[in-house]
Protein backbone atom coordinates (compact mmCIF):
# COMPACT_ATOMS: atom_id res chain seq x y z
CA UNK A 1 0.00 0.00 0.00
CA UNK A 2 1.23 3.46 -0.87
CA UNK A 3 0.81 6.12 1.77
CA UNK A 4 -0.70 9.24 0.30
CA UNK A 5 0.42 12.54 1.80
CA UNK A 6 -1.31 15.75 0.73
CA UNK A 7 0.77 18.87 1.09
CA UNK A 8 4.51 19.22 0.53
CA UNK A 9 5.17 21.85 3.16
CA UNK A 10 7.39 21.06 6.11
CA UNK A 11 4.77 18.82 7.75
CA UNK A 12 4.08 16.73 4.64
CA UNK A 13 7.75 16.26 3.93
CA UNK A 14 8.56 15.19 7.48
CA UNK A 15 5.72 12.64 7.36
CA UNK A 16 7.02 11.35 4.04
CA UNK A 17 10.51 11.09 5.52
CA UNK A 18 9.42 9.13 8.59
CA UNK A 19 7.19 6.75 6.65
CA UNK A 20 9.70 6.10 3.90
CA UNK A 21 12.38 5.52 6.52
CA UNK A 22 10.15 2.74 7.85
CA UNK A 23 9.97 1.19 4.42
CA UNK A 24 6.60 2.50 3.34
CA UNK A 25 6.01 3.57 -0.24
CA UNK A 26 4.97 7.24 -0.16
CA UNK A 27 3.42 9.63 -2.67
CA UNK A 28 3.24 13.33 -1.86
CA UNK A 29 0.66 15.44 -3.67
CA UNK A 30 0.84 19.21 -3.72
CA UNK A 31 -1.03 21.92 -5.57
CA UNK A 32 2.21 23.46 -6.78
CA UNK A 33 5.39 22.25 -8.38
CA UNK A 34 8.40 22.03 -6.10
CA UNK A 35 9.20 23.82 -2.84
CA UNK A 36 8.49 27.52 -2.83
CA UNK A 37 6.59 30.54 -1.61
CA UNK A 38 3.24 28.73 -1.81
CA UNK A 39 4.17 26.87 1.41
CA UNK A 40 4.13 28.84 4.62
CA UNK A 41 7.26 26.98 5.75
CA UNK A 42 9.07 28.85 2.98
CA UNK A 43 8.75 32.01 5.05
CA UNK A 44 9.83 30.43 8.34
CA UNK A 45 12.67 31.70 10.50
CA UNK A 46 14.20 28.26 10.98
CA UNK A 47 14.95 28.71 14.67
CA UNK A 48 15.01 25.42 16.54
CA UNK A 49 14.52 27.14 19.87
CA UNK A 50 12.31 25.11 22.19
CA UNK A 51 13.36 26.90 25.38
CA UNK A 52 12.77 30.40 24.04
CA UNK A 53 9.43 29.38 22.56
CA UNK A 54 8.50 28.15 26.03
CA UNK A 55 8.15 31.79 27.06
CA UNK A 56 4.62 31.68 25.66
CA UNK A 57 4.10 28.19 24.23
CA UNK A 58 2.60 25.22 26.06
CA UNK A 59 4.80 22.51 27.54
CA UNK A 60 4.62 20.00 24.64
CA UNK A 61 6.27 22.53 22.33
CA UNK A 62 9.32 22.71 24.56
CA UNK A 63 9.58 18.96 25.10
CA UNK A 64 8.82 17.78 21.58
CA UNK A 65 10.88 20.56 20.05
CA UNK A 66 14.05 19.25 21.67
CA UNK A 67 14.27 16.48 19.09
CA UNK A 68 14.20 18.84 16.12
CA UNK A 69 17.87 19.78 15.77
CA UNK A 70 19.05 16.16 15.76
CA UNK A 71 16.31 15.13 13.36
CA UNK A 72 17.13 17.79 10.81
CA UNK A 73 20.85 17.11 11.08
CA UNK A 74 20.16 13.41 10.49
CA UNK A 75 18.29 14.39 7.32
CA UNK A 76 21.40 16.11 6.06
CA UNK A 77 20.27 19.66 6.80
CA UNK A 78 22.93 22.11 7.87
CA UNK A 79 22.02 22.71 11.48
CA UNK A 80 24.00 25.35 13.39
CA UNK A 81 24.06 24.68 17.11
CA UNK A 82 25.09 28.00 18.56
CA UNK A 83 22.24 28.72 20.95
CA UNK A 84 20.11 31.84 21.03
CA UNK A 85 21.03 35.30 22.26
CA UNK A 86 18.11 37.10 23.85
CA UNK A 87 18.75 40.84 23.95
CA UNK A 88 17.08 44.01 25.14
CA UNK A 89 17.80 47.68 24.55
CA UNK A 90 18.73 49.73 27.64
CA UNK A 91 15.23 51.03 28.28
CA UNK A 92 13.57 47.62 27.82
CA UNK A 93 15.57 45.73 30.44
CA UNK A 94 12.40 44.97 32.36
CA UNK A 95 11.44 42.71 29.45
CA UNK A 96 14.61 40.78 30.01
CA UNK A 97 13.84 40.16 33.66
CA UNK A 98 10.44 38.88 32.68
CA UNK A 99 11.85 36.60 29.98
CA UNK A 100 14.53 35.26 32.33
CA UNK A 101 11.90 34.20 34.84
CA UNK A 102 10.27 32.01 32.24
CA UNK A 103 13.09 30.67 30.13
CA UNK A 104 16.13 28.89 31.53
CA UNK A 105 19.35 30.49 30.38
CA UNK A 106 22.46 32.28 31.41
CA UNK A 107 22.02 35.96 32.21
CA UNK A 108 24.99 37.80 30.76
CA UNK A 109 26.86 40.73 32.21
CA UNK A 110 28.04 43.42 29.80
CA UNK A 111 31.37 41.75 29.20
CA UNK A 112 29.94 38.30 28.51
CA UNK A 113 27.28 39.77 26.25
CA UNK A 114 29.81 41.67 24.19
CA UNK A 115 32.07 38.63 23.97
CA UNK A 116 29.28 36.41 22.71
CA UNK A 117 28.26 38.65 19.80
CA UNK A 118 30.95 41.30 19.35
CA UNK A 119 28.94 42.93 16.57
CA UNK A 120 26.40 44.04 19.18
CA UNK A 121 28.97 45.24 21.71
CA UNK A 122 29.23 48.66 23.29
CA UNK A 123 25.71 50.00 22.91
CA UNK A 124 24.23 49.11 26.25
CA UNK A 125 22.38 46.00 25.12
CA UNK A 126 21.96 43.34 27.77
CA UNK A 127 20.80 39.82 27.45
CA UNK A 128 20.81 36.17 28.22
CA UNK A 129 22.17 33.15 26.44
CA UNK A 130 20.05 30.06 25.83
CA UNK A 131 22.61 27.44 24.93
CA UNK A 132 20.78 24.33 23.85
CA UNK A 133 19.19 25.73 20.70
CA UNK A 134 19.97 25.68 17.00
CA UNK A 135 18.95 27.16 13.67
CA UNK A 136 18.82 26.20 10.02
CA UNK A 137 17.97 27.73 6.67
CA UNK A 138 14.40 26.54 6.10
CA UNK A 139 14.50 26.81 2.34
CA UNK A 140 17.72 24.85 2.05
CA UNK A 141 16.37 22.28 4.53
CA UNK A 142 13.11 21.81 2.62
CA UNK A 143 14.77 21.65 -0.78
CA UNK A 144 17.38 19.23 0.51
CA UNK A 145 14.83 16.98 2.20
CA UNK A 146 12.72 16.87 -0.95
CA UNK A 147 15.67 15.80 -3.05
CA UNK A 148 16.63 13.19 -0.49
CA UNK A 149 13.11 11.78 -0.42
CA UNK A 150 12.92 11.65 -4.21
CA UNK A 151 16.22 9.77 -4.28
CA UNK A 152 14.76 7.34 -1.76
CA UNK A 153 11.81 6.63 -4.05
CA UNK A 154 9.16 8.96 -2.66
CA UNK A 155 7.13 10.23 -5.60
CA UNK A 156 5.87 13.79 -5.89
CA UNK A 157 2.76 14.60 -7.86
CA UNK A 158 1.06 17.82 -8.65
CA UNK A 159 -2.66 18.01 -8.05
CA UNK A 160 -5.40 19.46 -5.93
CA UNK A 161 -5.53 16.34 -3.81
CA UNK A 162 -8.72 17.35 -2.07
CA UNK A 163 -9.80 15.04 0.66
CA UNK A 164 -12.61 12.85 -0.59
CA UNK A 165 -11.60 13.13 -4.19
CA UNK A 166 -9.02 10.44 -3.85
CA UNK A 167 -10.68 7.08 -4.19
CA UNK A 168 -10.04 4.52 -1.50
CA UNK A 169 -6.94 4.14 0.63
CA UNK A 170 -5.56 6.18 3.46
CA UNK A 171 -4.83 9.86 3.10
CA UNK A 172 -2.58 11.90 5.35
CA UNK A 173 -3.73 15.48 5.11
CA UNK A 174 -0.90 17.95 5.76
CA UNK A 175 -2.36 20.87 3.86
CA UNK A 176 -1.91 23.42 6.61
CA UNK A 177 -4.32 26.34 6.48
CA UNK A 178 -5.93 25.01 3.28
CA UNK A 179 -7.50 22.28 5.42
CA UNK A 180 -9.79 24.88 7.00
CA UNK A 181 -12.46 23.50 4.67
CA UNK A 182 -12.70 20.44 6.93
CA UNK A 183 -11.08 21.71 10.16
CA UNK A 184 -13.21 24.71 11.17
CA UNK A 185 -11.26 25.31 14.40
CA UNK A 186 -8.12 26.00 12.40
CA UNK A 187 -7.31 29.70 12.06
CA UNK A 188 -4.65 31.73 10.30
CA UNK A 189 -2.05 33.74 12.17
CA UNK A 190 -0.38 36.07 9.77
CA UNK A 191 3.37 36.57 9.80
CA UNK A 192 5.47 39.08 7.91
CA UNK A 193 9.22 38.88 7.42
CA UNK A 194 12.11 40.45 5.57
CA UNK A 195 15.43 39.21 4.24
CA UNK A 196 18.43 41.55 4.27
CA UNK A 197 22.00 41.46 3.09
CA UNK A 198 24.38 43.19 5.46
CA UNK A 199 27.84 41.80 4.73
CA UNK A 200 29.47 44.00 7.36
CA UNK A 201 27.50 42.52 10.23
CA UNK A 202 28.54 39.20 11.67
CA UNK A 203 26.17 37.34 13.98
CA UNK A 204 26.78 33.72 14.83
CA UNK A 205 23.39 32.85 16.27
CA UNK A 206 19.78 33.99 16.18
CA UNK A 207 19.16 37.12 18.24
CA UNK A 208 15.79 37.79 19.80
CA UNK A 209 15.27 41.43 20.59
CA UNK A 210 12.72 41.81 23.34
CA UNK A 211 10.47 44.82 23.08
CA UNK A 212 7.09 45.55 24.63
CA UNK A 213 5.60 46.45 21.26
CA UNK A 214 7.92 45.41 18.44
CA UNK A 215 9.67 42.15 19.29
CA UNK A 216 12.06 40.98 16.59
CA UNK A 217 14.26 38.06 15.81
CA UNK A 218 17.20 38.08 13.45
CA UNK A 219 18.43 34.78 12.08
CA UNK A 220 21.81 34.71 10.32
CA UNK A 221 21.69 32.66 7.13
CA UNK A 222 25.36 32.98 6.19
CA UNK A 223 27.04 35.10 3.50
CA UNK A 224 25.83 38.27 5.17
CA UNK A 225 22.16 37.30 4.73
CA UNK A 226 19.76 37.82 7.62
CA UNK A 227 16.13 36.93 8.05
CA UNK A 228 14.04 39.31 10.17
CA UNK A 229 10.81 38.11 11.65
CA UNK A 230 8.12 38.03 12.36
CA UNK A 231 4.81 39.67 13.03
CA UNK A 232 1.98 37.69 14.59
CA UNK A 233 -1.40 39.03 13.54
CA UNK A 234 -4.74 37.33 14.07
CA UNK A 235 -5.64 37.11 10.41
CA UNK A 236 -5.70 34.50 7.69
CA UNK A 237 -4.71 37.11 5.12
CA UNK A 238 -1.87 35.97 2.88
CA UNK A 239 -1.52 39.20 0.95
CA UNK A 240 1.61 41.36 0.78
CA UNK A 241 3.22 42.68 3.96
CA UNK A 242 1.97 46.03 5.19
CA UNK A 243 4.21 49.05 5.36
CA UNK A 244 3.61 49.36 9.08
CA UNK A 245 4.75 45.81 9.79
CA UNK A 246 7.85 46.20 7.66
CA UNK A 247 8.71 49.57 9.19
CA UNK A 248 8.42 48.02 12.64
CA UNK A 249 10.63 45.06 11.76
CA UNK A 250 13.24 47.22 10.07
CA UNK A 251 13.25 49.83 12.85
CA UNK A 252 13.77 47.14 15.43
CA UNK A 253 16.64 45.71 13.40
CA UNK A 254 18.14 49.18 13.04
CA UNK A 255 17.89 49.66 16.80
CA UNK A 256 19.64 46.32 17.34
CA UNK A 257 22.50 47.29 15.03
CA UNK A 258 22.70 50.62 13.18
CA UNK A 259 24.69 48.81 10.49
CA UNK A 260 21.43 47.29 9.29
CA UNK A 261 20.66 50.78 8.02
CA UNK A 262 23.00 50.08 5.12
CA UNK A 263 21.62 46.61 4.44
CA UNK A 264 20.13 45.66 1.08
CA UNK A 265 16.49 44.70 1.34
CA UNK A 266 16.35 41.44 -0.60
CA UNK A 267 12.88 40.24 0.16
CA UNK A 268 9.69 41.04 2.02
CA UNK A 269 7.32 38.18 2.60
CA UNK A 270 4.03 37.35 4.28
CA UNK A 271 1.91 34.29 4.82
CA UNK A 272 -0.48 32.82 7.37
CA UNK A 273 0.35 30.03 9.79
CA UNK A 274 -2.23 27.35 10.61
CA UNK A 275 -3.12 27.23 14.30
CA UNK A 276 -5.68 25.70 16.65
CA UNK A 277 -7.09 27.73 19.58
CA UNK A 278 -4.35 26.66 22.03
CA UNK A 279 -1.65 27.05 19.35
CA UNK A 280 -0.74 23.38 19.74
CA UNK A 281 -0.69 20.97 16.78
CA UNK A 282 -3.16 18.12 16.40
CA UNK A 283 -3.37 14.69 14.83
CA UNK A 284 -6.94 13.69 13.95
CA UNK A 285 -8.28 10.57 12.31
CA UNK A 286 -11.56 10.84 10.48
CA UNK A 287 -12.44 7.79 8.45
CA UNK A 288 -9.56 7.05 6.15
CA UNK A 289 -8.13 10.56 6.49
CA UNK A 290 -5.57 11.57 9.08
CA UNK A 291 -5.05 15.26 9.63
CA UNK A 292 -1.72 16.53 10.90
CA UNK A 293 -2.01 20.25 11.29
CA UNK A 294 -1.84 23.41 13.40
CA UNK A 295 1.91 23.80 13.76
CA UNK A 296 1.50 27.56 14.25
CA UNK A 297 4.96 29.17 14.39
CA UNK A 298 6.61 25.86 15.19
CA UNK A 299 6.79 24.12 11.81
CA UNK A 300 10.44 23.16 11.72
CA UNK A 301 10.49 22.72 15.49
CA UNK A 302 7.56 20.32 15.81
CA UNK A 303 7.08 18.63 12.41
CA UNK A 304 9.74 15.99 13.13
CA UNK A 305 8.14 14.92 16.42
CA UNK A 306 4.65 14.88 14.92
CA UNK A 307 5.82 12.89 11.91
CA UNK A 308 7.50 10.40 14.20
CA UNK A 309 4.36 10.03 16.31
CA UNK A 310 2.26 9.57 13.22
CA UNK A 311 4.59 6.94 11.78
CA UNK A 312 4.54 5.16 15.14
CA UNK A 313 0.77 5.07 14.97
CA UNK A 314 0.55 3.80 11.41
CA UNK A 315 3.36 1.27 11.72
CA UNK A 316 3.23 0.15 15.37
CA UNK A 317 -0.23 1.17 16.53
CA UNK A 318 0.94 3.64 19.17
CA UNK A 319 -1.66 6.34 19.42
CA UNK A 320 0.00 9.78 19.30
CA UNK A 321 -0.01 12.09 22.28
CA UNK A 322 -1.37 15.00 20.24
CA UNK A 323 -4.26 13.00 18.78
CA UNK A 324 -7.45 14.71 19.97
CA UNK A 325 -9.92 12.98 17.70
CA UNK A 326 -10.06 9.39 16.51
CA UNK A 327 -13.01 8.40 14.39
CA UNK A 328 -12.36 5.72 11.85
CA UNK A 329 -10.12 2.82 11.18
CA UNK A 330 -7.83 1.34 8.63
Amino acid sequence: MTELVIGAGVMGLCVAAELSARGRAVTVIDREEGAGPHHCSWWAGGMLAPDCEGETAEEPVVRLGRAAADWWAAQGAQVTRAGTLVAALPRDRAELARFARRVPGETLDAEAFDALEPALAGRGLRGMFVADEAHLDPRAAITGLRARLAARGVTFERGEGRVGQIAGGRVIDCRGLAARDVLPDLRGVRGEMAVLRAPDIVLTRPVRLLHPRFPLYVVPRGDGIFMLGATQIESAGRGPATLRSVVELLSAAYALHPGFGEAELLEIGADARPAFPDNLPRIRRRGATIHVNGLFRHGFLLAPALARQLAGWLCDGNKPELCDEDHGEW
Binding site: G188, I233, G237, A272
Partner: peptide
Protein backbone atom coordinates in the same frame (compact mmCIF):
# COMPACT_ATOMS: atom_id res chain seq x y z
CA UNK B 1 -4.58 45.62 11.73
CA UNK B 2 -6.38 42.34 11.29
CA UNK B 3 -8.81 43.84 8.82
CA UNK B 4 -5.99 45.47 6.89
CA UNK B 5 -4.17 42.19 6.52
CA UNK B 6 -7.07 40.15 5.20
CA UNK B 7 -9.60 38.52 7.46
CA UNK B 8 -9.43 38.10 11.19
CA UNK B 9 -12.65 36.11 10.98
CA UNK B 10 -11.61 33.00 12.85
CA UNK B 11 -10.18 34.98 15.76
Amino acid sequence: REAAGGDGGAF
